[in-house]
Write a protein that binds this DNA or RNA. Structure first.
Lengths: 191, 191
DNA sequence: CAAGAAACTTTACTTTGTAAAGTCGTTTCT
DNA sequence: AGAAACGACTTTACAAAGTAAAGTTTCTTG
């Protein structure tokens, strides 16, 4: 990863922020980075290649936060911290969050991308496995716990950020609300 | 809604299925519908206009399913049926589901679109209000219940359809899995 | 039956993605 | 040291796509 190729990914951020995800053009990205209109294609082959790199970096950034959370000893606290990290990332990097799930923009057969996506999954699975070993919610399969918690966290964040949940929750803040809801569900799961 | 304008929206479906969401071009849609390459622009002004109409129709179709479910007497059964409808729609109309949340593709200031999006929300809210009135999960605010259940359903479906949950749940089917998980959570919420 | 409107198509122009070849400074080989 | 090769881009060129504007044909309506 050279200096310049990183700068191009930063330029994608700026272009998305200014013109929205579909306002991203290779030419604009190049210009934004202070380079020629073909610089992005030079480094990343083509537009899918650029998005693949951009989204892979986003997943890795997000996974950093989740992995950091997973280092907390208490699995319950780790889970809440992971959800916090998720919500914080979505709000801090809306440009990135808004395109992370857009598989049609990327080259789907890129190992680095899948690896980056898996990091968050594995970190979460580790937290829940520890929680289960510590007799927290022992009656559930780990896989089911992942689906419930991750699904809920992702779903609420996704429906909140520009989605149909934004209006009814107007005036509330995502992060504390998500935390409160997750605590409720975790408490209920744990009996 | 004339015959022809509907046919153009069907053509969008076919083009997405064949070329993916970013393979949608006005020219292709026109050709696919057996018309000229500017026909879609003629009916819907421009590309965002076409997507706005397409996505609005998708939300309405989905809302039909949820509203039908909400007519079941038992609120718990209605909730499960609504989740079923959600998952069934996502699997039956992957082309539509894959672009429904892509706000950047549409004209966001289109009342019909927001109306269509709200229909599902209101139907769900009605189910949960009835559930609460019937002393089902009475300790929760309706808004929180919506966030938890809808968030979980949407999140799982979204992470499942082409997302990172697809791999670990390989071999399972979305609809029964979702139903099972939702039942668990509803049972736990209801104590 | 004439006048206009509806339902498109044709033409034309601009933006964008991308291939291919070019430039220019730095490294490596002999 | 001088030539060859390479890296890091830029320039040029072209086809696909969005869209504005004007044209054509067919249906309505007075």
């Amino acid at each position: 990863m050279s200096e310049t190729s990183e700068r191009l990914l930063d330029a994608v951020d700026e272009v998305i922020t200014e013109h929205g995800p579909s306002g991203v053009t290779l030419r604009r990205v190049g210009t934004q980075a202070g380079l020629s209109h073909t610089a992005a294609a030079h480094y990343y082959q083509n537009k899918p290649g650029l998005f693949t790199a951009y989204i892979t970096r986003a997943y890795n950034t997000m996974a950093d936060g989740i992995e950091a959370a997973s280092e907390l000893e208490d699995p319950r606290e780790a889970m809440l911290a992971a959800a916090d990290a998720y919500a914080r990332f979505a709000e801090a990097q809306p440009a990135q969050f808004s395109v992370m799930s857009r598989l049609e923009l990327v080259n789907v057969d890129t190992p680095e991308l899948w690896q980056a996506r898996e990091r968050g999954y594995f970190a979460l699975a580790a937290i829940l496995e520890r929680g289960q070993a510590a007799s927290w919610a022992p009656s559930y399969e780990v896989l089911d716990l992942i689906a419930i918690t991750w699904g809920m966290v992702h779903g609420i964040v996704d429906l909140w950020v520009g989605g149909p949940l934004a209006a009814p929750f107007d005036g509330h803040q995502l992060q504390p609300t998500l935390r409160r809801l997750l605590i409720s569900v975790l408490d209920d799961l744990d009996h």
